[in-house]
Simulated scan of single mutants.
Amino acid sequence: MRLHNGIDAERLMQMLRQNLIKEQDQWKPKAYNSVDIDTSEVNGNQRDEAVRWMLFLNRRFGFTPETFGLSVSLLDRFHCLVKVRPKYLHCVAISCLYIAAKTLEEEEVIPSTVDLVKISQCSCSVAEILRMELAILNKLSWNSKFVTAVDFLHIIHGLLMNYFPQLLKGLSDMTPSRHLGLLMRRLFCCYSDHRLMTFRPVTLAMTVICLELEQMTPNWLSMVIMVQQMAKIDNEDFIQCREESGRFLTSNKLLPTGYKFSAQKLLPKKSIKRKASILDDEDDIYDGIKRLYNEDSNDVRMSCAKELHQDNQDNFIQMTTVSAN
């Protein structure tokens, strides 16, 4: 999904309704076991490590945020249907990413299976990935298109920009694409916590936006209630998801954002100063998502995941090498 400034609120509402219907038909929560309960099945911590590795690979291959979101959905859905042993986890993870790429990416971006094995250092053979890919598709009845929290984040953010176009005017050097990039970074972080995957995708996306609005405007509650009603999000689930996501993002130093609150920040005359260190870290975040809003004529293909996690590249390379050995 790629949203642009030209899409009006009516079209966004139609997209929201369609995705809510798909979510109701498709989504199933997956509760992973604790670490020491059953060593014959992938536990939550192992799943989270695999998701972080998938995010690194998503950046490495230049895939879009939508591809990463879909790959995680495929991974969790497959675990709902099959009891996966830990030794097969990396093969399942790389296969889910490959299926998602084939579903959403342009043909010229998708690597060959040989290159996939070589670049990812997944310790799987080409034949093993092809067999696993077939096994996953068979279990999913060859349906690889699922609605994800990434999709809902795009839509809800677009609705906010339509209904409240003045929302970002109080923040210096902030554009819709940059703002969406910041939200995407937090959503990606939430994907790496299996406990948050028990919530509906629309609830998780709305939670990320709620945590942002709380720091941006004193009118955040009315905005949240409006979108919550549009998306038909259960209040109890929403509150629980907001609390757990807030704690997790804070522990990962993604909250608070660094905005300095001002009662007049929605007025165009004043500009809110943000921490210089945060601005420096985020300057390269939103470039990969500019194309969603046509703010840059540069046609170079970039992944939002690539921009968001460059600073963790060395750690992921080390983790990938260890997994391969």
Rank of each mutant, 00 (worst) to 15 (best):
T203A: 11
G170V: 03
R301F: 10
V35C: 02
C189V: 11
F63A: 08
R85H: 12
R52G: 13
K253Q: 15
V202G: 01
G181I: 07
Q264Y: 05
S297M: 03
M15W: 15
R85W: 02
K253F: 01
L81G: 02
I209M: 01
V224S: 07
S40D: 10
T321Q: 14
S177E: 03
S120K: 03
E133V: 05
A149W: 02
W27Y: 12
G288L: 06
S245E: 03
L308T: 15
L134I: 12
T207D: 07
R195T: 10
E107H: 09
E23G: 07
L70Y: 05
L159N: 06
I155H: 00
V92H: 00
F146M: 08
E106H: 06
A100Y: 00
E105H: 00
M13H: 10
Q240D: 12
E106M: 13
L183S: 06
D280W: 07
K102Y: 02
S120Q: 02
Q264K: 04
N58P: 11
Y259D: 01
L171Y: 09
N58I: 08
H309W: 15
R186M: 12
F78T: 03
D234G: 15
W220I: 00
V109S: 10
V224E: 10
S277F: 08
V126N: 11
I239E: 12
Q264F: 08
L267M: 09
Y32W: 09
V150E: 14
C190D: 05
D38P: 04
W27A: 06
E214K: 08
N19L: 07
R60M: 05
F164N: 06
V126G: 01
L16V: 05
M319G: 07
M302K: 15
E212D: 12
N312Y: 00
G181D: 00
C124M: 01
L153Y: 04
N235Y: 12
D36H: 10
V117D: 06
K253P: 13
N252S: 06
E105V: 06
R291Q: 05
N138Y: 09
A276F: 11
F199S: 08
M226L: 07
N312C: 14
D314F: 15
V150H: 10
Q229G: 13
T103R: 11
S123Y: 04
L159Y: 01
I21A: 14
T321L: 15
C80I: 01
N312V: 11
R11N: 02
L255G: 09
L74V: 04
Q228G: 14
K269A: 14
S277C: 06
N45F: 11
S123Q: 07
N294G: 12
K260E: 12
V117W: 03
P176C: 04
H90Y: 03
R52S: 14
N5H: 08
S297E: 04
L16T: 02
S303P: 04
N298E: 12
E295D: 13
M230Q: 13
A101S: 12
N325L: 15
T203G: 09
K253Y: 09
L104Y: 07
V147P: 00
T148G: 00
H309R: 11
I272S: 13
I233Q: 09
S323Y: 00
S251N: 13
K253R: 15
V300D: 13
I278W: 04
K253A: 15
